[in-house]
Amino acid sequence: MIDFILWVLQNIALAPYHLFLAITNPAAWLDWSNPESLVRFIYYGGSVEFFFVVFTTFLVITALGMAWKREILWACVRGLEWFANGIGRIVSWSGLLMVLQQVMIVFLQRIFRVAEIQLGPLGTAFVQDLSWWGEELKLYNALVVTLCVSYTFVQGGHVRVDLVYSAVKFRTKRMIDMVGSIIFMMPAIVLTYLYAWFFMWRHLVVPNPSASAELDRMLMQARVLRWNVETIGFSPNGFNAYFLFKILLVAYCVLVFLHAMSFFWRSYLEWLEGEESEGKYLDRDVMGDEAEDLEHAIHSGST
């Protein structure tokens, strides 16, 4: 146990040094024309060093907000919630686009007997079979699920089972939120990210990177590393860009982790400032109908 604690403290102490190296040597991991730089990006994206850089940043911001100025934490909360809302409000239009495209496919296939759709923006020609466009509808659904997750959290739209939570006092609720974000939300999404990161790269490059490989071994493999983007569909003329789903899975993990930090900070600040701070700076969508807004507030637990 002591060895583990010392290992954690050592990595926290080295985190600023690793961050400084990454910032001052961007070509070492961002110059993807060099296979060794790409290998370093792949390795460090799922490494212990990267985890402790993120974790230490979270600890430093939290400590500054608790010990010095709580406005620092409120600024982080407002910024992260604005980011989540901004992405969600834009990506949520994918649902409408999905419906319109499905209607178009049905009309073209059943009424006009068209076999393919050709788009030619800016003089280019993009031609795909109707089955390709039909399978591509999954991408819109994936966009909504992965990129609107933190937006839905901010808006209070996730399903809640509040058998205990609804019966306790305000400060107890905030304590439950803080413990939940630290003990459950963050560890779960970190494990998901580690799987998703290497799962994504195994469908983008060969030889396939391994989560257990050391950096030296991966640098040796850089000599034969090449791009091999997955373009295999489930049907001969079907959608062939399933690698996008792997990228969206990584984006999902990043958004959830960022909001886990934001949720912890908001819960702490509301616990500290009392009930009058509940929903402070919270930017939630308004339906325009008082009955619908009240029903949404009840279901989201904000009233």
Rank of each mutant, 00 (worst) to 15 (best):
A67F: 09
G288T: 07
V179W: 07
S277N: 03
V60A: 11
R223Y: 07
V77K: 02
P236C: 06
R284T: 13
A75N: 06
M218N: 07
W133C: 06
M175W: 14
Q155K: 07
G233K: 08
F112H: 10
I176A: 13
Q109F: 10
S181K: 03
M178F: 04
G233L: 07
C76F: 09
G279W: 03
L163F: 10
R284M: 09
A67S: 10
N85I: 09
T124N: 13
M98T: 07
W227M: 13
Y252G: 00
E295Y: 10
V250K: 02
V159W: 10
P26S: 06
V127Q: 11
P26M: 07
L108S: 08
F263R: 11
E270V: 04
G123H: 08
F107K: 14
W82G: 10
W133M: 07
F234E: 14
T172R: 13
S262Y: 00
I247N: 05
I90M: 11
R89S: 07
D3A: 12
A291S: 13
V229K: 10
L137S: 06
G86T: 14
C253V: 03
E295V: 14
L249I: 12
A28C: 04
P121D: 05
I189V: 15
V103C: 11
I182K: 06
R284D: 01
G279Q: 03
V48F: 01
T146L: 05
A196N: 12
T172P: 03
G88M: 02
L225D: 05
V149Q: 01
V205H: 03
N141G: 13
E230Q: 13
L194Q: 12
V60E: 02
L139E: 04
E136T: 10
L255K: 00
T152N: 07
T124Y: 08
L122D: 12
V224W: 10
F243R: 07
D162N: 14
N240M: 10
L59S: 06
F83K: 04
V149L: 08
E49F: 00
Q155S: 03
V149T: 08
Q155R: 03
Q118K: 11
F257D: 02
I298P: 01
P35W: 02
M98F: 10
A75L: 14
L258T: 00
I5P: 02
M200V: 05
A167T: 15
A13Y: 14
L204T: 11
T192S: 11
